[in-house]
């Protein structure tokens, strides 16, 4: 997998049997939809189809952030907010190939963890808390 930001080959981090693509230079993370499915299934949560449907029905967020291209299909992804407070803008592939978290976004997620938000049992929260757990050290 090629990092959509810096175009380097990404490494893969496997944690609790879930694989994430991780760019060692920009610290961005690609959450592939197949892995997303495995994570949500193992938590007994909704199907990724509904997860993606929920995300893609939401409005495209106005943002000054640069558009990212999906590392799988190469199409421009959609910026969309995910999670509670503070909101984080992730890039979602319109063809449901996966989610992209910019390097800074992961760091902000982890800071949020430090502020002790109680995790809710909801798919989006599950994705976020999994990311927080995996990337503890890059905060």
């Amino acid at each position: 997998m090629i990092c959509p930001v810096c175009k380097y080959a990404m490494m893969v981090v496997e944690y609790h049997n879930i694989e994430l693509d991780y760019c060692n230079s920009c610290k961005g993370v690609w959450f592939d939809s197949g892995e997303l499915e495995l994570l949500l299934k193992s938590q007994g949560l909704e199907e990724p189809k509904t997860f993606f449907a929920g995300i893609s029905n939401s409005q495209e967020a106005a943002s000054s952030e640069k558009k990212r291209k999906c590392p799988i299909c190469g199409r421009k992804m959609k910026k969309t907010p995910i999670g509670g407070q503070p909101e984080i803008l992730v890039d979602v592939c319109r063809d449901k190939h996966g989610l992209w978290f910019d390097g800074g976004e992961v760091t902000r997620l982890i800071r949020r963890l430090a502020e002790k938000h109680p995790p809710k049992h909801d798919s989006k929260e599950q994705v976020i808390s999994f990311l927080e757990e995996v990337f503890e050290a890059s905060g």
Partner: peptide, 20 residues
């Protein structure tokens, strides 16, 4: 407990585990 998969293109001598 994390496992890192490093692509063959990766040229640096060291890598930091993002988990720990």
């Amino acid at each position: 407990g994390a496992r890192l998969r490093v692509p063959p293109q990766f040229k640096q001598p060291q890598i930091k585990c993002p988990h720990c």
